[in-house]
Design a binder for these strands. Structure first.
Length: 439
DNA sequence: TCTGGGGTCCTAGGACCC
DNA sequence: TCTGGGGTCCTAGGACCC
């Protein structure tokens, strides 16, 4: 039994049931009730309150399989409201940023903080962090602290599952024998980077607990699996291999995806075209926001993987662009070209999407000598479009190809039957008392 | 009837070249 | 006509994450 090193300290802070908590901030009536938040299309359950978990509702469950709880246990449900969660996330990250010199935002509801060099005990400091987010934003959080990111994640898991720690667990504050006990108690599939497939294979090698994996030769793991899992073994031993990517040295995003399931299956290419065009427009807007251009666009369409009595078909095609671009019109053109190639009639399509990749910095843009495209004009048109949409709301101006059919008639539109208001991002929807103050 | 969306990284294998 | 190995680059697909 050897103690984990203490020279480095990384904290993982994350919001408890983040989406649920965001909704409860603005609707306290939801407090103490079983509540679930649904994915796009009201398809799956993506966030559950403690009370909903207690009913045995697992993460990711298709909503229709949980609907009976609405009657039997007054289960409350909401469609997801990403504008709200995104905005609350920004606020949370800002509050947390004040507690460390280095912060890496890892997902909408969690970030790493580098606490190396801080005075022990770190658990007290972590409690302070929790108090602050609760006081400023009414968002409950948990904190896990360890010498590597992987151990910090694991510590966070322990903090969350064991109420006696009141939301904070730190390896450094833990006796070496207790450290070992925890590692022996936790299943290997809880480790960050070990998913379903890997854990099944690890079980075959008699590696069942975190402790087992920690004490396997990383070289052997590298040969049998990959460098990624070997790195995880090092991390579990307190040797930090995954470094902090804070905002300053954040690598640029490498691809932008926009895809969605349809409200109902569609069979006509015209409707697919509308959907694809609107996905391209959204992705291209993101592309311009980060001041990039792209060189490749991938289009994919697919039938439902769950449909029992129809053939599966899920083609995709990647179209190279002669010049890197961020012009929605050119991207839509290319996407249509691809769609025509892969489309086959007679199938019931349930989902489509596009991926922009080979992203480049707009500044390094190279124009093709032989191209007829007037770059400057293209940039101006796109800038104007983005500006109008920013000022007057999304989709004020868009390409005709995204469908001129009146709103609800668009078959491919999402279902979102029960969405809360945009409490923090739209003047017209912020809570009354607050709105009054500003008028 | 109803089953999410948006990312990252790595690897194996094919094409091509010398 | 027969016959080789090694390197690089690219892509598709798989695994993982939230």
């Amino acid at each position: 039994m050897k103690a984990l090193p203490t020279d480095r300290a990384i904290a993982l802070v994350d919001g408890n049931n983040f989406y649920v908590s965001c909704e409860r901030v603005f609707n306290p009536k939801l407090e103490g009730k079983p509540l679930v938040i649904l994915s796009n299309n009201d398809g799956c359950i993506v966030s559950r309150s403690q009370e909903a978990r207690a009913l045995g509702i697992p993460m990711g469950l298709p909503f229709f399989e949980a609907k009976h709880f609405i009657k039997s246990h007054q289960l409350q449900w909401l469609s997801s409201n990403y504008a709200l969660y995104g905005d609350m996330s920004d606020r949370l990250m800002h509050v947390l940023s004040e507690f460390a010199t280095q912060q890496e935002i890892y997902s909408i509801d969690e970030c790493f903080l580098d606490l190396s060099g801080h005075q022990a005990p770190l658990t007290a400091y972590a409690q302070e962090i929790r108090q602050r987010t609760l006081q400023y934003l009414r968002l409950p959080t948990c904190v896990g602290i360890g010498p590597s990111k992987t151990l910090a994640k694991l510590a966070n898991h322990i903090a969350k599952k064991n109420p006696q720690f009141t939301g904070v667990f730190s390896w450094e504050a833990c006796h070496p024998q207790d450290q070992t006990d925890w590692l022996k108690k936790i299943a290997v599939d809880e480790v960050w980077g070990v998913g379903r497939k890997l854990s099944a294979q690890l079980h075959q090698l008699q590696i069942h607990t975190v402790y087992d994996l920690q004490n396997t030769n990383p070289e052997l793991i590298r040969q049998r699996f990959s460098v990624v899992l070997a790195r995880t073994v090092h991390e579990l031993n307190g040797i930090s291999c995954l470094h902090m990517n804070d905002l300053k040295n954040m690598p640029r995003q490498q691809q932008i995806i926009s895809s969605k399931s349809f409200g109902q299956v569609i069979e006509k290419i015209e409707l697919l075209q509308e959907a694809i065009a609107s996905y391209v427009c959204r992705a291209a807007e993101k592309l311009r926001q980060q001041q990039s251009t792209c060189q490749l666009i991938t289009v994919f369409i697919r039938t439902s993987p769950f449909a029992k009595n129809s053939l599966p078909y899920k083609p995709q095609i990647t179209i190279p662009l002669s010049i890197a671009t961020a012009d929605s019109r050119r991207l839509v053109q290319a996407a249509y070209f691809g769609l025509k190639h892969i489309f086959r009639s007679g199938y019931r399509y349930q989902k489509a999407g596009i991926i922009l990749s080979e992203l480049q910095d707009q500044a390094q843009h190279q124009n093709d000598l032989f191209s007829q495209v007037n770059l400057q004009q293209s940039t101006q048109v796109m800038q104007t479009m983005d500006l109008l949409n920013q000022r007057y709301g999304a989709n004020t101006v868009t390409l005709a190809s995204t469908g001129l059919t009146a709103g609800n008639a668009r078959h491919w539109r999402l279902r979102a039957n029960q969405k809360s208001q945009n409490f923090t991002t739209r003047w017209t929807e912020i809570p009354y008392a607050l709105a009054n103050r500003h008028t």
